[in-house]
Structure formats: C-alpha cells, structure tokens
Design a protein around this nucleic acid. Structure first.
Length: 281
DNA sequence: CGATTCCCCTGATAGC
DNA sequence: TGCTATCAGGGGAATC
C-alpha cells in the first residue's frame, strides 16, 4: 500500500513529466473515484505537485487543486504521447497495459500524454478544492508531522509519547499523530527499534524512544531509496514495482533476518508483524 | 480518552 | 467445476 516512500516516489516522477501540462479532458470510467465536476479543471495547467503525508496535491493554475489519496490500491501511471504505458496492478490479469479493468480515471493532456488513475478496491479519492482551502481538508488539517519535518524531533516524540497510553503501533498508524506511516513501515520501524507493537507508548524507556526515532527515519529512507514496497499492488508512475520488500524484516515475512519466527497479531483491523524473540512485551 | 467493530470494495484463496 | 465464506487494509464513524 502506498505510504510516504511510495507516494513520494510517484510525486517525484510525476513532477518530472507533468509540470506545465494542460488538462484537456478527464475521462471518468468510474463515478466514485472522482466525484466532483471535472469541468472545474479543464484547460488548467499543473503548476506544482506536493505531498502531505500520504496525500498528493496537484496545484493547478486556476486556483484549484486535486487532493489525491491512493489509499490501498491507488496507482498513478504516466504515459507519454505515442508511448504505451506498462501495466498497473502486478497480479495478472490486472497488470494488463493501462487502461485495464482497474483504471478509474484518465487525465488527457494537451500534448497527447495521459495519466491513468487505477484503483482496484475503489477506496482512493480525488477531490477538487480551491488551492487556498487545501489545508482545510480534514485529513490534512488534522495531520501530524511526518518524520522528515523539522518539528519532528526526539524531544517532540518523547513528549508526545509520554502523554499517550495507546499501543505504540496504533499511534504510528494514526495520521493525526505522525503522518506518512502505514502498516509496512510501522512494523519495520518497530522491529528496527526492537519494540513490541503492543507496548503502551507511555511506558517506553528513553533509549527505546531514541531508537524508534532513528528507526522511523531509517526505514522510510530505505523505502525511498529502494523505490517503495510492492508487497501488494504498488507500482510507481512508470508502472514499475519497488524493491523495499527485498529488505523488509518482518512485514509479511515468516522469519526475521536472524531466523526467528515472526508472529502476526490483529490490532483493530490491521495485522501487526513482529519478531517473536527480539520484540518482547 | 482508548479500544473495538463495522463499513466502504474487489479479488485471491481455501473449503466444500 | 463452481459456489460460498473469509481475508486484506487506510481511514472514518459509531459504539462501548
């Protein structure tokens, strides 16, 4: 699923291709993904592509922005004029060249290039909002700092964790607490820091918090460097998979790098993966 | 406040 | 073969 490293990978690739391009047509293949009236963005050019946590924001030159959340299976695949873009979802037959049966929206640009928005599960969304109101979108307004923000310091993390009493993994997944982290990188960061996912945040020792702080940045950087994690449906804007799962230690793994069995426990609606030996409660 | 459950949705998979 | 139940999961809402 797209988390900070995956969304950032897509953002950088799309910035290379889409800045200055004029939107000529928005082809809706499914009504749910793009509920707003596409006429509000026709003829507008893409000025900038930003990211807030896991949310991508396309700023247009008509004071409108496209607030885009990929959720579980959203994909953005670029196709230049005269090119044939690769497939999207890695599982055949869903990895057919775009458009395929998961394609929900196609942006057509004036120069003949296209941007395909695929989403198998239909949880992803695109909202058209005035650029000045992007920060008022609930998900963005209430979003906590991401691990690469200036405000995300050891002191801040230590202070915030001491004020909470929920399980540490639940907090890492809470976008209003820290943004950008999902199930993969939370499991990986907790393994890196040797913290059991069910540990109450308020009871974490100082050295564990320091370790977690470093680990969060470390696993996300590793994710960025390896082009994201393609455990499930993630592909980048070129339709390519990321390599992070080659380096993952616990997420969807049977054994950790040291050969210890991985346990998998339900937490809310998610599954937490952790080393049965190194991450003790 | 925190924890849990259901819901949105589709496809892979297991069991019969 | 082919049907059906189960599961996955970001995040919001309802409930305890």
């Amino acid at each position: 699923m797209p988390e900070l490293p995956e969304v950032e990978t897509i953002r950088l690739q799309l910035k290379e291709k889409l800045i200055g391009k004029k939107i000529e047509e928005v082809e809706k293949l499914h009504p749910k993904t793009f509920g707003d009236d596409p006429r509000a963005i026709l003829g507008a050019k893409i000025k900038d592509i930003r990211r807030q946590g896991k949310i991508l924001i396309f700023d247009l030159d008509n004071q409108k922005s496209l607030v885009t959340h990929l959720k579980l299976t959203g994909q953005l695949i670029y196709e230049g004029k005269g090119e044939r873009a690769a497939g999207g979802h890695p599982v055949p037959p869903l990895n057919a060249p775009v458009p395929n049966k998961t394609t929900r929206i196609i942006y057509h640009f004036e120069d003949g290039s296209k941007l395909y928005f695929n989403d198998l599960r239909l949880f992803a969304y695109i909202h058209v909002v005035p650029t000045v109101q992007v920060e008022e979108e609930k998900a963005i307004k209430e979003m906590g700092p991401e691990p690469f923000d200036e405000g995300f310091t050891k002191e801040w993390l230590t202070d915030q964790l001491s004020k909470k009493s929920s399980k540490i993994k639940a907090l890492l997944l809470d976008q209003t607490f820290i943004s950008g982290i999902g199930n993969i990188y939370s499991d990986e960061a907790l393994y890196c820091a040797k913290i059991h996912p069910f540990v109450k945040s308020g009871s974490l020792a100082k050295d564990k918090i320091d370790k977690l702080y470093n680990c969060l940045k470390e696993v996300l950087k590793k994710g960025l460097k390896s082009g994201g994690a393609s455990d499930n449906s993630y592909v980048n804007a070129k339709g390519e998979k990321g390599k992070f799962m080659d380096f993952a230690s616990v997420y969807h793994k049977k054994f950790c790098p040291k050969g210890h069995p991985i346990f998998r426990l339900k937490m809310g609606g998610r599954s937490a993966h952790f080393c049965s030996v190194e991450q003790k409660l």
